[in-house]
Simulated scan of single mutants.
Amino acid sequence: MIEAQAQGSEYIDEACLLVGKFLYNFSIMEKGVDAAIYKLFDLQPEYAPIISLNMDFARKVNILQNASVMRIFDQNETERQKFDKLTSQMFGINQPFRARIAHAPFEPDGKDAVIFAGTKTKNGKQVAGLRITRQTFNDLFGEMRQIVAEMRDVLAKIRPLSAVDDVSSLSVSELRSSVSDLAGKMREFEEKWRAERNVDDWEEGWQARSLAQSTRRQADWRSELQPQAVMLLNEMRRRLGQPQSHEGEAIYRMPDFALMPIEQGSLAGANPLHEAAMEMERLARSLLEVR
């Protein structure tokens, strides 16, 4: 039905122009995301499409988002927050707009809007149709052009993973300084979460809220600070001749229970990160000024 109506509409050319212009701008934006992925993984141009052509847009953006969280980019906190906003914009354009525009039949709704047909999800749920006005299209075009411009700045700040700092090259004093900086961040992280927790909140639903907050706290720890902590801990253990942890496997021997937040990502107990920070500092003090 929609095909028959579209073929007979006097505004079909205008509708096709808007749809084509959207897909063109989206492809330029995705090309910028691809370039960032290629640089991050130091991919050779002839092999890079093996990755980009077999990965959907949202997964690509997720990779860049995680790299930013793990401080792979040369960003300060303000720039990182700006990039988080940029990725949120990309997700917002991808879904629902790109997903519907790229895959659904459409027809003009007069000269100033396009209607995209509804569809069904894999589980059979009906998704309503989507009407996009000419003004919304123009807003999306401008937003995508702005994202493309900002992605050029992001590209300049990306360090290939192969070039990420190797802590094995640090002097003992530099390693101790890195551990001291991390320990401070760990304590700040724990204090921040303690301040947000309301122990007197006994209203209905407090258990669910507390569980959600605990889950988010652990996820933030694992993405923001744990990777660096594991790297520094393993380097200290290597220099001290101690077994190292790999792939999140904890080594159960005293006094390393204090380091379980680093080895396992678990934040059990009253002050797990304060205790882990103290143990990291103790190990740093044990290092000799020889390598």
Rank of each mutant, 00 (worst) to 15 (best):
E150F: 15
I63W: 08
S88Y: 05
Y38D: 12
F22I: 05
V127I: 15
A229F: 10
K111P: 15
A183N: 01
Q44F: 09
T121A: 10
S210T: 08
E203K: 06
E143P: 01
S178P: 02
E77W: 00
I158E: 11
D200P: 08
I2Y: 07
E196T: 06
M236I: 02
E46H: 14
G124C: 06
G92R: 04
Y24E: 09
E107D: 08
E279P: 00
R222P: 02
A15S: 07
R238W: 07
D112E: 07
N25K: 12
Y38P: 03
M260F: 15
F22Q: 00
L40E: 14
I132N: 13
I37M: 13
L64P: 02
D34N: 13
D181Y: 03
N198S: 06
F83Q: 13
I50E: 06
L233K: 01
A183L: 00
R238L: 11
K125T: 11
R239E: 10
F257W: 07
K21S: 15
N62V: 01
G129S: 11
S245I: 11
R152I: 10
Q135R: 12
E263A: 12
W202I: 14
D84N: 03
I50P: 00
V19H: 00
S177K: 10
A268G: 04
L140Q: 06
A258M: 13
E196H: 02
A195C: 11
S9A: 10
A258Y: 14
S245M: 09
Q5K: 04
N62A: 03
A36C: 15
A48P: 00
I132L: 06
V69K: 10
Q126G: 07
L40K: 02
G20T: 07
E204C: 01
D84E: 14
Q5N: 03
